[in-house]
Design a protein around this nucleic acid. Structure first.
Lengths: 129, 129
DNA sequence: CATGTCCTACTACACCAGTAAGAGCCTAGC
DNA sequence: GCTAGGCTCTTACTGGTGTAGTAGGACATG
């Protein structure tokens, strides 16, 4: 279970740790926009559960407050998400891309970047071989 | 609630309806691979819940068996999925694309197709304006 | 040192997805 | 008409997520 499944709210909490580094619960909670933010103890519960999933750990204490730090990388978690998502489409990219473009989520810059990355990847592969 | 949220299993059931058209529960269940397929009543429960969500409806009966048909389109459901997914990334495509390419999920053909579609879309927009 | 504030740890609950068993109804075939 | 098999409906339990309250310990500051 090296890469536990993370829910939306759990992800948002991890985002804070990834962005800011080791953080206390209070700071995590406050980094949610003031309106519609979950209660302190809600964030706390989620952090505890993330601890159980080994997604983060208590790094140290400041006063009596724990400071938590991420144990899994943003990249790893995102890779997991993408996998999960693709499996819903049976791994077929075509409808996904089509949808992204139709909805205007994909700019020509995104596509250009993709091309560039693809070329780099191909070059890297060739070198390795 | 025109576009209800569908879970993985619910999606798989809808896939059958989208592929085969109006279908009985027995046929839906059997279209899951013989190994690891959910029990008949499990599929039934999901179908009932999908009915509650207005994702499908009873079209007619054959004997005493109901035949169900999809009420929402595959495209609409997929659009919903993509939105949902993107919101996890705060709508930023860059990490998503990067991940897709790194993991080898995105071929150069996919990217070429994307480019083509983008150009078509741009042309269409221009015409409309 | 007293007291208010903040944090922790625990408990609780509702909802949803997934799973399925059980009771009983309908129908087809003998 | 009777019976077997399939289908419907109902009910139920589990695990995960989101939500939060409460009790009590720690700490800082007057």
């Amino acid at each position: 279970m090296r890469l536990p499944k993370l829910s939306k709210l759990e992800l948002q909490i991890m985002e804070v740790l990834w962005d800011k580094g080791p953080t206390a619960i209070r700071d995590i909670q406050e980094s949610f926009g003031a309106k519609g933010r979950p209660a302190y103890t809600t964030v706390q519960t989620m952090v505890y559960r993330l601890e159980g999933k080994k997604a983060l750990r208590r790094a140290r204490k400041i006063g009596n407050a724990h400071i938590f730090e991420a144990l899994i990388s943003r990249d790893a978690a995102q890779a997991r998400l993408v996998d999960e998502f693709l499996s819903l489409f049976g791994g077929r990219m075509q409808p996904v891309m089509a949808q992204l473009i139709e909805a205007g989520n994909l700019s020509s810059k995104d596509v250009a970047d993709a091309e560039k990355l693809l070329r780099e990847l191909a070059a890297r592969k060739k070198k390795e071989a």
